[in-house]
Design a protein around this nucleic acid. Structure first.
Lengths: 127, 127
DNA sequence: TTGACAATTGAACAAATGCTCAACTAACAT
DNA sequence: ATGTTAGTTGAGCATTTGTTCAATTGTCAA
C-alpha cells in the first residue's frame, strides 16, 4: 500500500490519460535512473549522433590529426570542422595540443573509443 | 608511391587548405571505415541522443509498458510519446504488440540494452 | 450501432542545429 | 613591422526536429 504512494500526483493531472498498469508504473518509477543522469546520457549520445562529428571521431580513432588534415579527410572547410571540434572539445570527446601554428586533435580517452567501436561492431553484425 | 594516389584529387580543389601531413592523411583515408557505415552509426547514436527517447528506453529497459504507462512515467502526453515511439520503432530500438486496445512496447534486443547501459556506466564512473 | 478509450497521425509552430562567409587571433618567417 | 598560414569565432540562414493540437483509426462493451 505504502509503495503505491510513490506516484505522488494523480496521473490525470499531469498527463492526458489514466494509468493503466499502476503496478508496472510504480515499479518502473522505483527503479528508473535519475532523470538528470538520463539527460546527461542523451547529451553524450547526441554528440556522436551527427555525421560530421562521427566521421571526425572515426578519423581520430586512427591517428592524431590537425584541423587541416581533418578538412582534407572529410572534404569540408576548416571552419566547419573547427566548429564541430569545439563541440567535441566541450563534450570531452577530444583533446588538443598546439605546436606552432598547428593544432593537433586526438581522442580524449578509451571511453569514447569504446563506445564508438561498439556501435560500429553492432552495425557490422546486423549485415 | 602508388599508395599516395589514393588521394585522388588535389586537396586545394576539395577544401580550403593545403594538406599538412600527407602521410597521416593517406594512412587515415586508407583505414577509415566506409562513409555510409559511419553515417548509419551516427544515425544510430542520434536516436539515443534525445532526452525523451533516452528516458523511454530507460523505462522499457525495466519493463514492458503501454503508451499510457509511459506517458505517466515521463509525465508527457500520449501523443508526444507516440511520436517518439514511432522513431524508436523505425530505428529498430523497440518492438510492439497489441492486446485489445492496448499496445505494449519493449526493447527490441540486447544490442540496444547493451549500448544504453554502457553509456550509463561511463557517466557513473566519471562522477 | 453507439459510446468510450487507447493509440496513431498530420499540420503547424517554435526551438535547436550545422554550414557558410567574413572577420579575427595566434604563431612564425622574412 | 609585414605578410602568410593555421585556426577560431560570430552572425546569418536554411534545415531539421520535438511538441502541441485536432482529427482519425482500432478495439471493445453496452
Amino acid at each position: 500500500m505504502a509503495k503505491k504512494q510513490r506516484v505522488a500526483v494523480s496521473p490525470a493531472e499531469v498527463c492526458d490519460c489514466e494509468m493503466i498498469h499502476a503496478d508496472s508504473v510504480a515499479a518502473v518509477l522505483e527503479g528508473l535512473q535519475d532523470k538528470a543522469l538520463l539527460l546527461r546520457n542523451a547529451e553524450f549520445f547526441k554528440v556522436m549522433g551527427d555525421p560530421t562529428r562521427m566521421r571526425i571521431v572515426a578519423a581520430l580513432d586512427q591517428s592524431e590529426l590537425c584541423v587541416c588534415d581533418l578538412a582534407v579527410v572529410l572534404d569540408m572547410t576548416k571552419s566547419a570542422i573547427s566548429h564541430q571540434l569545439r563541440t567535441l572539445r566541450e563534450a570531452n570527446f577530444v583533446k588538443s595540443r598546439r605546436d606552432g601554428k598547428v593544432v593537433y586533435y586526438s581522442l580524449k580517452d578509451e571511453h569514447v573509443r569504446q563506445i564508438f567501436e561498439l556501435g560500429i561492431e553492432h552495425l557490422s553484425e546486423e549485415a
